[in-house]
């Protein structure tokens, strides 16, 4: 439990500095870091059931939060999604793939590499899904008001 809370704090701070590296507008930074930490929590909890589902649901949450914040702040959703999604991005998978290649273990390199690509694809699907849904909702609202 304690390590989980510590992980969430680390995740929050890491994405906070990441938002600063990307020069995100100052008033968006805390919001995107909170959604990063919550998205990471979802990712970690679901990962024990199915790793790929964890990547999918974590990104889905962050993308949805991004769209909600985008409406609230009247800013592009990307500004909230980019820094927030970084902790979930399977950097460790990419690194392990490389490590396996260096150790001449092509078989596990392929195995880890394929899984990593699959996880990245799951994240991309989650992002596209949310952005399609958001634009559909937007156009429905627009049609109703006219």
């Amino acid at each position: 439990m304690l390590t989980m809370i510590l992980d969430l704090i680390y995740c929050f701070v890491a994405s906070l500095f990441f938002a600063l590296i990307m020069n995100a507008p100052k008033k968006t930074i805390v919001n995107s870091s909170i959604s990063a930490a919550l998205g990471y929590l979802i990712y970690i909890s679901v990962q024990t059931i199915s790793p790929t589902l964890g990547f999918f649901l974590g990104t889905l949450f962050i993308a949805m939060m991004g769209e909600i914040f985008a409406r609230k702040f009247k800013m592009p959703a990307t500004i909230f999604i980019f820094p927030a999604v970084i902790p979930i991005v399977p950097g460790y998978g990419l690194y392990q793939t490389m490590l396996a290649i260096v150790q001449n273990d092509i078989f596990s390199a392929l195995e880890i590499g394929a899984t990593t690509i699959l996880n990245i694809a799951a994240m991309a699907i989650a992002m596209v899904l949310v952005s399609i849904l958001a634009s559909k909702l937007q156009s429905l609202k627009y049609r109703k008001s006219n």
């Binding site: 890491a14 991005v89 950097g91």
Partner: peptide, 21 residues
């Protein structure tokens, strides 16, 4: 991994797949 995290192209890969889709 931590040191490479700001450099790793995970986000670029996600964007590539998203653009293609």
């Amino acid at each position: 991994v931590g040191g490479m995290m700001p450099l790793l192209p995970g986000l670029a890969m996600t964007n590539a797949i998203r653009d293609t889709m």
